[in-house]
Design a protein around this nucleic acid. Structure first.
Lengths: 230, 230
DNA sequence: CGCGGCTTTGATGTTCATCAAGTAAAGTGG
DNA sequence: CCACTTTACTTGATGAACATCAAAGCCGCG
């Protein structure tokens, strides 16, 4: 089960976001009042599609998947990593969450009450502008990511996701995959069988090594080539 | 060539957006000072990818396509219709436009200087909150649209775009297509030949009539079925 | 008139989803 | 702790959907 943990005061929080740096001392105290910190274990559900939106979630450590149930089989929208505002893009236009969220690694999260955010936005123009800029760049990134995926063939998509894990999430060429083959398929829109097939192909061709759940990228240059030209 | 046209004062503008209704009289006068109105003819380019961002564009009448050049062949991101803020999603996080914009019908646009928008956001919390809500719902819609497209087969995609034109843009079952077959392909991610093939198929099956550039939907119920189940 | 762009149809090939079947790993209850 | 069930992983065979290639008609425009 998720557990509540002691609050770090925003003033000294090591995860203090660029955004909250724009808030003066006294207002930051208000934010402190309306936030809670939680720890979720790998596999635990944080919110489900349709739950009432009450908090904006800021991810300190861990990984969260955002996904949507669509008949048989889910669709993963994105994977949030530390310093991300999880689901920021839709919290301000909906009464309830459009996506479910589940921790895919042990995670620590800061829950900030949405009314508190709104109040802050209304009374602090710089903060509002910061939120807008953040939303704007998140949208750009998401669209870019999805568009570049949709143009690629299957090998190119697998290459992209491996590079993404190595470069942007784990910052190393050897890492433990936090998602199953099926989940990878749900994220980059292909069948589980083909995810496996191309992993095997990459292994045979010496691009990666697979040791149980851990992946080591052994030829990142070629992988980048496949990512670009796939 | 595009021509500048006389400004309507925001106070009495018939296109006055939900957003600007939140701005009090005196501040609205400031907005009036920093806006220009233009008329563009069908086919005219408004901005190109990479141009410096100086204005937020609000579409009064007409249609605008947002697209991106990607090597051979463009990719159409979306088609903006009256009362849309064109490109709102990325104007606040970039120095230059990520997408090109071209009028695909004769259009009238209101150009509001971006600095003016930012100033308004900072000094008016309700307005800021309005922009945030607008961005949030635009992102939701865009993602929904693209996801529902990507899951469909080609017939389903053509059905969706026809329904979209009929329901959301022209509000009638008979309309003149503002885009070529190739552009339709660029929007819903398929080859020109297949766009044509499926149009012909739909014509043979009595779903639509094609008279030169105009399309008449003759069996919208079946078209909706194909849209849902394709 | 001839050139280029848009449209159309047919033939062919590739990519990927689907189906099938089997192994390994991990959770479940007695 | 072991039988049992379920879930993840893996490989091969087949077929459907779609891209690609080719060729020709149409139309506007210089």
């Amino acid at each position: 089960m998720s557990e509540i943990i002691n609050k770090t005061s925003c003033q000294v929080c090591p995860y203090k976001s660029m955004l909250f740096q724009k808030i003066p001392e006294d207002q930051l105290n208000e934010v402190n009042q309306c936030k809670k910190q939680f720890r979720f274990k790998k596999g635990e559900s944080i919110y489900k599609e349709g739950d009432k939106i009450e908090h904006l979630i800021y991810l300190h450590t861990g990984l969260i998947k955002l996904f949507r149930q669509s008949g048989e089989g889910n669709q993963i929208i994105s994977i949030a990593k530390p310093y991300d505002f999880v689901g920021l893009l839709s919290v301000f236009s909906n009464q309830s969450y459009l996506y479910s969220m589940t921790a895919i690694e042990d995670s620590e999260l800061c829950f900030i009450h949405i009314d508190c955010m709104k109040k802050e936005i209304k009374q602090n123009g710089d903060f509002a502008m910061g939120i807008i800029e953040k939303m704007s760049s998140m949208t750009d990134n998401l669209l870019n990511y999805k568009y570049s995926l949709s143009k690629k063939n299957l090998r190119g998509r697998i290459a992209q996701i491996l590079i993404d894990f190595a470069d942007n999430i784990y910052k190393t060429n050897e890492f433990k995959l936090p998602v199953s083959r099926r989940e990878i398929g749900e994220l980059i829109d292909m069948r589980t069988e083909n995810v496996i097939r191309i992993f095997s192909e990459f292994r045979r061709d010496g691009l990666i090594k697979i040791n149980g759940p851990t992946i080591e990228i052994t030829n990142i240059d070629l992988l980048r080539m496949i990512n670009e030209h796939g």
